[in-house]
Structures are given as C-alpha cells and as structure tokens.
Computed example of a mutant assay.
Amino acid sequence: MELTDQLGQEIIRRLSRYIDVAINLMDATGKIVASTDTARIKQIHGGAQRVIETLEAQQITKEISNQYSNTKPGVNLPIFHRGELAGVVGLTGDPDQVFQAAGMTQGSVEITLEQLYIQKQSFYQERQWNHWFHQLISNRETEDLEKEARYSLRADLKKAWQVLVFQTPSPYDFAEKLRRQAEELNLSPLFILPFQENSVVMPLPFHENLPPIKTDGPAAIGEPGYSAKGIYTSFQQARETLAIAGKAREIIHSGSLKMERLLSNITKDTFTEITEPYANRLNRLETPYLKTLDAFFNNDLKMSRTADELHVHRNTLHYRLDQVHKKVGLDARNFKDAIILQAILINH
C-alpha cells in the first residue's frame, strides 16, 4: 500500500494532534503528498529521495540541508508496508531532538497502513461474498459458485452448514457486533453480510451445540445442509421461519416449525379457496378466543396443559372451543379442522 494524497492528509491530521513539530509524508518517488505546512505539498523532497535510494534513515543538519532540494533540517525515515517501501516520513527540527519522535511517527504510520490494508481487504472480500451470495439465491446454480468460493475466495464449502438470519433495524451496525461475537465464540462463519434493508445473514459450519448468540431482534437458523446447495436451502428455511415466528427475541430453529413452514407454502389459490369462508369468521373472533386457539395448538391439542397455561378451568376451555366451533365452523379438537385453523392463523 502506497502513501497517497488523501491517505497522507488523514494520517497527518491524526498525528499532528500529538506531535508539535512539522511533519511531512512523501510517497515512494519523494513527492510530498501531505504536510502540516500545506505550501510544501507536491514538492519533491531531496532528503526523501536520498532515503528512497539507500532505504536508510537520514539525519539532515542545518549545515547540509542545502545539499538536498526543498529540504529543511530534521529526520527522514523510510516507511515499509509488507516488505515494500511505501514512502518516507520526515520531521522538521534539530535531528537530535526530533529523532525519537520521528521513530514513533514512522511506527504509527506503518501500523496505520497495515490497519487500512486489512480494512480494505476485508471490505473487498465482503463485496465478493455479497456478490456470491446474491448469485446463489438468484439462480441456485451451485457448481460454478463452489469453484468461485474455492479458487477466488479461498473457502472450502465441502461440509455441512447452517445459516442464521437476523432481523434488525440497523443491519450494518449489528453485522459489526456479530463479527465481534463470532470471534469471541470461535464460530468461524463463512461470512457475515447485511442483507436487504433489515437483515443480517451468517452461514456457520454445523455445530451440534451452538453457543448462545446475542441478538437484538428476531432470528432463525436453518437446518444443516451440505456445500453451496445446503447454504441456499438452510437460508430459505431460516427466512421462512422468521416470517412465521413473529417477533420473538430469540433464535428459532426451523426444524421446530416444520408443519408451520409446510402450511405456509400452500399455493395462494388453494389456500384462499379452502380457508376464505372460515378466515372471515375467524378474524371477527374476540381476542380471548384467538389466544385460546394459539395456546391449544402450542400445547399439541392437550386440554389439561392448555387450561393450566391459560389459568382457566377445563370446562371454560371446552366452552371457548365450542364457541369457536359455533362461530367459525371448525372444531379445533378435530384433527382435520385443527389443520385448517392452524393454516389460517399461520398465514394471517
């Protein structure tokens, strides 16, 4: 990574808060790209050119400063990034007095370049994964995408994956939080991507015992699936589960809602034809009856468990279910009627 005008000015802006002498940053040709003395920007710095030739620090005293063009007394040090010369940093002043500060400045610039490089690489990789993932969910063609993941993104997909989908009002902020969590929990996600306007997607290698993951909203996890095709399927399962699960602030496993997912995928025409007469009546029911149906289905049609959860007598529960039967035309205690009622409630 080389020192550019924009990058150099940002580094100068940060360093000048802590160093009270003039600072110059030169690129790998010796041109001043940033300086606390803006009049010197774009000048060729003779002392920097000497550093570039020798790859060694240069202390320039007042007596020899006129030997180098556009150079003042001070210290000039080479800046390296990943073994390559990236530029030169110079501090103006008595060499003996500014040498230590120059060394610290050199180290700060090299650390900053490495951090920016890592950020740039991470951003580039995120864009690659974003493109890859959208290709996956758009056309489902996995063979070429598996090759791209292996050769371009250096990722081995030949394993079982589970995809987590999180709903959040701030996907970019939550994605950053999730990356920190993943690192702390040693989760090794394939990627963590903001998706659409309110979601974050995270495929994980399958874990029998997934550690608890903090979420700031509804979340779901699909079932394990192998390679790219498995990622696609697990993602779709998690999305369907989120659409069904409502607003629970916990991670819902798609395997726990198989029946609900099945019913939610009935074709619209068939669903409307069968349920419309009952749905209109069901929508007119008072809230206690709807809550009773939810509790009854959540307790697997068990009368005693439902009555206990609702804190009502079994006779009261029977009365409410009788009223639902009378007003809607479906008896929740009858298996086939219960399926139709459940489908209406799921797709409501």
Score class of each variant (00 low, 15 high):
1 M>P: 11
1 M>Y: 01
4 T>W: 00
9 Q>Y: 05
9 Q>T: 10
18 Y>I: 11
20 D>C: 03
21 V>K: 09
24 N>I: 01
28 A>L: 04
33 V>Q: 00
40 R>D: 09
42 K>S: 10
43 Q>K: 15
44 I>E: 05
51 V>Q: 02
54 T>S: 11
55 L>Q: 05
56 E>H: 03
57 A>R: 02
57 A>W: 00
59 Q>H: 12
62 K>D: 07
66 N>F: 12
67 Q>I: 05
68 Y>A: 07
69 S>N: 08
72 K>H: 14
72 K>R: 15
77 L>N: 07
82 R>S: 04
87 G>H: 00
90 G>I: 02
92 T>V: 13
99 F>P: 06
107 G>N: 12
108 S>A: 13
109 V>P: 00
113 L>A: 03
114 E>W: 04
122 S>G: 11
124 Y>Q: 12
126 E>D: 04
127 R>W: 10
129 W>C: 04
130 N>T: 13
135 Q>E: 10
137 I>H: 02
137 I>D: 04
146 E>M: 13
148 E>G: 06
165 V>C: 11
169 P>L: 02
171 P>K: 03
176 E>D: 12
179 R>P: 04
182 A>Q: 02
196 Q>P: 04
200 V>G: 09
206 F>C: 09
210 L>Q: 09
217 G>H: 02
217 G>R: 03
220 A>K: 03
221 I>M: 06
222 G>A: 04
226 Y>G: 01
240 E>Q: 15
243 A>Q: 09
244 I>D: 12
262 L>K: 03
263 L>N: 03
267 T>E: 15
269 D>V: 14
270 T>R: 15
274 I>R: 14
275 T>E: 04
277 P>R: 03
278 Y>N: 05
279 A>N: 01
281 R>V: 03
283 N>W: 09
284 R>V: 06
285 L>K: 13
290 L>S: 07
290 L>W: 06
291 K>M: 14
302 K>C: 06
304 S>V: 14
305 R>P: 06
306 T>Y: 10
306 T>I: 12
311 H>M: 13
312 V>H: 00
314 R>G: 08
317 L>I: 10
318 H>G: 06
321 L>T: 12
331 D>E: 07
331 D>W: 11
331 D>C: 10
335 F>E: 15
336 K>H: 12
338 A>Q: 04
341 L>K: 02
342 Q>S: 13
